[in-house]
Design a protein around this nucleic acid. Structure first.
Lengths: 238, 238
DNA sequence: CGTGTTCGTGTCCATCATACACTTATGCGA
DNA sequence: TCGCATAAGTGTATGATGGACACGAACACG
């Protein structure tokens, strides 16, 4: 720890053993009526061929969140998403070969922006409904559970749900989103009353097109107002 | 972990560079009318002589929480406390000499159980009020801020506050605790109504002694009931 | 122009949150 | 022992919020 000298080229030598440090990303996306998670097929051992979370090792001089974003782009093409640290998993035996500590992140992505068809895309990335996940590598099932639990908890007092919707959305879409995340039905009139009273969505003068019923009005999220309120310690609950 | 001996220098060679992984603990305790945090004086460089959070490097085959508990006992004598993972700090430059990723934990301890007098105890551990912290090593001030924010958020929907009180407490002590954590005054009657309606505290038939005013009834936290409710997905709010 | 489908809207009631003040119990000292 | 100082313990009234509930309006399509 104290007297550090540069290692010989291509080798890194330490006085004490060090675990490897990785990041893993749970990317959640909203489909018509369920939440999906983005998985990739592992191309290398261990767990070669199994489905796993996108992720990888942290670079020598790279921040943790930076590493998570880099891996997301490299493995799935997804950039510019809401990303937040979730939990760090470090049980000694979570990787069968050597000690790996994984800092997990969770991300919320608009499915529409990233239409991967399962199995066809880059190295086999695909969206999988949470209700029927395939067998997963390592402890990745646990990590997904933790991410969903966090989302469910957080969505009730912070408007992060908007990250899962397109920039313009109908109130019915927003309600559906909450119903899917919270796993219960909500009353339409009460929901609209509540959401509009929070004053965080702005009515646009656009409407849905191409639907064979009365077109719904489109709204957008007022992020500036939200940021201002948060800065002043304001609290919500949905 | 117990019979661990340092390997000969230079034994640990890796193909890729690896950051060191540490744990740091923010131990919060309740004093008469403020929250305090437990700090130790660093005996080694970097930041030798500065105040810092108790913590240290994770053992080769040691879980993260296990490492946090071990360091707490070693550096402060505190065992058997509420301990929960907080956040992982990994900016490349948070340690001036080499890359260290730190998994932060926060703990809640009853001050009465651990009466350290500042500066006298093992290697100089001491309780410091949050309102006037000394200069701290590394990014430890940031870590403390995160822990306090987490406590403030969590105390509103989970009864973790009880961890800061002795096994038998008066409702006024409990109210004071909430006032200190939430930084606002609460109405006595409303607070009691609320707490008693949650049905998580049990009236004992003991009373305060040695006070020069009407003795208050002592209560205890019903942990069994709480655990049962949590298991069934019950929710609180205080 | 009729039919199918979703949009958009208001009221009533129960529950909960908040504001607010006096009597009771105890220890201590005069 | 009596009074004083101090904190304990208790109820009600009012406003705010949450939840149940049903129907006419708009639009596409055949």
């Amino acid at each position: 720890m104290s007297a550090w000298t540069p290692p010989p080229p291509g080798r890194h030598v330490y006085e004490y053993p060090r675990p490897a440090v990785a990041v893993d990303c749970v990317v959640l996306g909203l489909d018509t009526d369920d939440l999906k998670v983005l998985l990739i097929r592992r191309g290398v051992d261990p767990w070669k061929g199994a489905w796993a979370l996108p992720g990888g090792f942290v670079g020598e001089r790279e921040g943790l969140e930076a590493a998570a974003r880099r891996e997301l782009v490299e493995e799935t093409g997804i950039g510019e998403v809401f990303l937040e640290q979730l939990y760090t998993f470090g049980e000694p035996d979570r990787d069968p070969r050597h000690r790996v500590i994984s800092v997990a992140y969770y991300a919320l992505a608009k499915l529409s922006d990233f239409k991967l068809t399962a199995g066809t895309d880059a190295a086999g990335a695909g969206w999988h409904p949470l209700s029927k996940l395939p067998a997963l590598a390592f402890d990745h099932a646990t990590i997904i559970d933790a991410a969903v639990a966090r989302l469910r908890g957080k969505v009730r007092y912070a408007p992060i749900g908007f990250e899962l919707l397109p920039p313009r959305f109908t109130l019915t879409q927003l309600q559906r989103l909450y119903e899917i995340i919270l796993e219960r039905e909500l009353d339409k009139r009460n929901f609209r009353k509540k959401i509009l009273s929070l004053d965080l969505v702005i009515e646009t003068d656009e409407k849905q097109t191409g639907v064979r019923h009365r077109a719904a009005r489109l709204y957008r999220f007022d992020r500036k107002k939200y940021d201002r309120l948060v800065k002043h310690g304001f609290e919500f609950a949905i």
